[in-house]
Amino acid sequence: MNALSLRNLTKTYRNGFTALRGIDLDIQQGDFFALLGPNGAGKSTAIGIISSLVNKTSGSVHVFGHDIDTHSAKVKSCIGLVPQEMNFNQFETVQNIVLNQAGYYGIPRHLAIASTEKCLKQMFLWDQRDMVSRRLSGGMKRRVMIARALVHSPQLLILDEPTAGVDIEIRRSLWEMMAQVNQQGTTIILTTHYLEEAESLCRNIAIINNGLIVEQSGMSELLAQVNKDYFVLDLAQPISALPKIEGYELELIGSKTLSALVNKEQSLNGLFQQLSMHHIDVLSLKNKTNRLEQLFMGLVSE
């Protein structure tokens, strides 16, 4: 069963700007799916349409088989949304924000109270439950929105940049939480600009650029396409010009730092031999490859 299926989805905003130019997408139930793309690609627009915040111009949306045009209430009950921008009442307490959202979803009060407590604890916000949300830190505000999105135990959780502005410790725990929620059967769609995050969490991926999907595949299949490694070398002595070395793409980043792009089949020994011949001493070596980032840059700059 598909958790989400989009067919030829388009969106032209009132000002005439076309943000989506015909998107087809299928996301399997249980998937952890990355929706990536540069700023302005149309990710939030697509998410807005799926979660009923934005009216589509044409095309179809099905969530767990329910058509958004004819069964919008069913579609809405399936989805939990963490939007990119803050959208809660700044004058309300953390607990009431989550509790009220449960009410909007039609959850009876006693169940809502229990679920709110569970979600706030999961988001490390239980101690802040009586705080007026305006007083929270940026990362806490984001966690309020995640707790709010989980309160009705959605089957499909959509996270639009949930880890932006969240500190490292909390980010790690958010990753754990997302993986855990996914393991319990919830389908997750994640957008993020931290590609390592998508790489380590997601099983399938779509890259969207200028309102079109430019790549869609399994994460491991996609990463297998990458055949170059990127290294950064720290040198003992500064050099003023790059030596000419056959077969390796070198670049001088600083006077004592070199970068090298090495094909998977090439050996590193060859590189070092040649560097020694030019009397260049290498002190240390770092693998800076972010495979997804490389692919991503290739796809969106085409």
């Binding site: 959208n87 809660f88 009442n89 009220n100 959202q101 909007y104």
Partner: peptide, 18 residues
């Protein structure tokens, strides 16, 4: 209006409320 301004109108739009 405050609900529109703070965008928490979205809390209602995403929920299955008639």
């Amino acid at each position: 209006y405050l609900r529109k301004f703070q965008r928490n109108i979205e809390e209602l739009l995403v929920a299955p409320i008639a």
